[in-house]
Design a protein around this nucleic acid. Sequence first.
DNA 1: AACTAATAGAGAATTTATTCTCGATATTTA
DNA 2: TAAATATCGAGAATAAATTCTCTATTAGTT
Lengths: 231, 231
Amino acid sequence: MDKTTVKVTRSILKGAPEPTLRRLPLYYRLLKQLRETTGRTGISCTVIGSELKLDATQVRKDIEMTGTVGRPKVGYEINELISAIERFLGWDKITEAFLVGAGNLGEALMGYPGFTDCGLSIVAAFDVDPNKCHRVIHGKHVRHISKLTGLMRRMRVQFGIITVPGEHAQQAADLLVEGGAMAIWNFAPVKIHVPENVIVTNEDLYCSLAVLSQKMTRRLAETRSKGAVKS
Amino acid sequence: MDKTTVKVTRSILKGAPEPTLRRLPLYYRLLKQLRETTGRTGISCTVIGSELKLDATQVRKDIEMTGTVGRPKVGYEINELISAIERFLGWDKITEAFLVGAGNLGEALMGYPGFTDCGLSIVAAFDVDPNKCHRVIHGKHVRHISKLTGLMRRMRVQFGIITVPGEHAQQAADLLVEGGAMAIWNFAPVKIHVPENVIVTNEDLYCSLAVLSQKMTRRLAETRSKGAVKS
DNA sequence: AACTAATAGAGAATTTATTCTCGATATTTA
DNA sequence: TAAATATCGAGAATAAATTCTCTATTAGTT
Ligand SMILES: NC(=O)c1ccc[n+]([C@@H]2O[C@H](COP(=O)([O-])OP(=O)(O)OC[C@H]3O[C@@H](n4cnc5c(N)ncnc54)[C@H](O)[C@@H]3O)[C@@H](O)[C@H]2O)c1
Ligand SMILES: NC(=O)c1ccc[n+]([C@@H]2O[C@H](COP(=O)([O-])OP(=O)(O)OC[C@H]3O[C@@H](n4cnc5c(N)ncnc54)[C@H](O)[C@@H]3O)[C@@H](O)[C@H]2O)c1
């Protein structure tokens, strides 16, 4: 067993570091785009790095986690790399999902075609509001929330997306767990509590906005103080 | 100048580490919620930590960045902490923003009342599609994209939100920069190129989905291999 | 008043992530 | 064929983030 194999095995056992996981989609998109727009079949970490403004070594280490091996002076095979990332992230298989809360955000997600890239398929949505139910949005049925658990078990859906208002997010999570959810993608700005074996990721807009706001605030403060010095 | 002052000064000069910035909104929400639902006026890192499943020391270090000082055995004043976070992130001031791309996601963002917490106010939206223009969505006007640059300069709006399809994101960014944007919140899944002095944050759904997918894939692999061992 | 328990704050230790350095290898060019 | 060059892959070095340890302080309790 060579060293690459050891690393890949570790990446499967312990999981890749989160920063790596968050960068892989960036490579993935770039590679797909390159494959479509240009005719090239190979790529090096140097190029990926300069394109995405990342350190080439970092790119190489990230790619290493997926198990792809490259060749000196040449780089990696684009197709091979794309499949490796897909396989590593589980994007090569279709994952069916239920969405809870067919409001503004829920509808936008239901209509988003881009999720097919990740193998994510929202198969149905659920809502408490009778006016929202029995409609078909972007080709998907909206059903009453009371049907969720039963249908989820019957259809063996294991992925849930929460887009209800914060105060109902825990209730939505409970229903998803009862239905057998294994993973939940939570868009509500609250911490939800689930059993240990359920994986939760929060999509928290406030978190990224905080990064942006603080940078902006600092920039403004700098400009002001410099201006003061000048005047 | 005491040590706390030194730390705060540094946090203003060099900026807080990004992980800290991303956690501050979590504290902020918890505190607001506690203030509203319970009558308590003080809180300790221990409580915040156990509530959010974070290490108490980490919470304390994060809070330190905002300049708030606590008292042993008591903790922090909730009101004081809330204002300190607001001030630190720049959420105490209104930031007016223009949104480019009044589609599914753009409309959802325009209708989202939660941004007032961060002082973010979307004052107008812009679109190329004539059918989308001249409408009023959630109380905000949608105008033709050709008006963006002029209006932005006139109204001195410095914050842009991009919700156009990926292939037009760069164009949208260029217009925002031309209009004098200082910060851009990009929801399109592409890397946009802007001058050095413009701050960009990408809200990339694929990144968080990747974290979730990979964990799920790994979990599934484990279950399968365990099942195989058992049988 | 003394004792106990809880907590902030400082700094050290540890862990994790990123960046640097170097040797091996493959490709291209002279 | 030999030399030059770009790149991967491995490991070391560095930097950043997290966690641990200790001390001082304060509120409550006996
Ligand atoms: N709209 C945005 O741009 C945006 C941005 C960031 C976060 N969010 C978050 O996403 C969530 C949804 O936002 P939105 O703007 O779509 O809100 P919305 O009010 O438009 O939609 C919420 C939907 O959930 C349904 N609902 C309420 N309680 C329910 C329950 N117990 N079970 C099932 N369905 C239920 C409502 O009927 C409604 O259709 C909120 O938590 C919000 O904080 C939204
Ligand atoms: N819908 C989602 O849930 C979702 C999720 C993740 C990311 N995104 C990203 O957000 C962006 C918008 O998604 P959407 O679902 O709202 O798409 P959409 O097609 O519903 O809306 C895009 C809007 O942008 C407008 N537009 C196109 N080119 C423009 C230009 N040059 N200038 C101004 N306006 C222009 C279109 O007329 C349309 O109204 C896309 O980049 C998408 O990848 C969307």
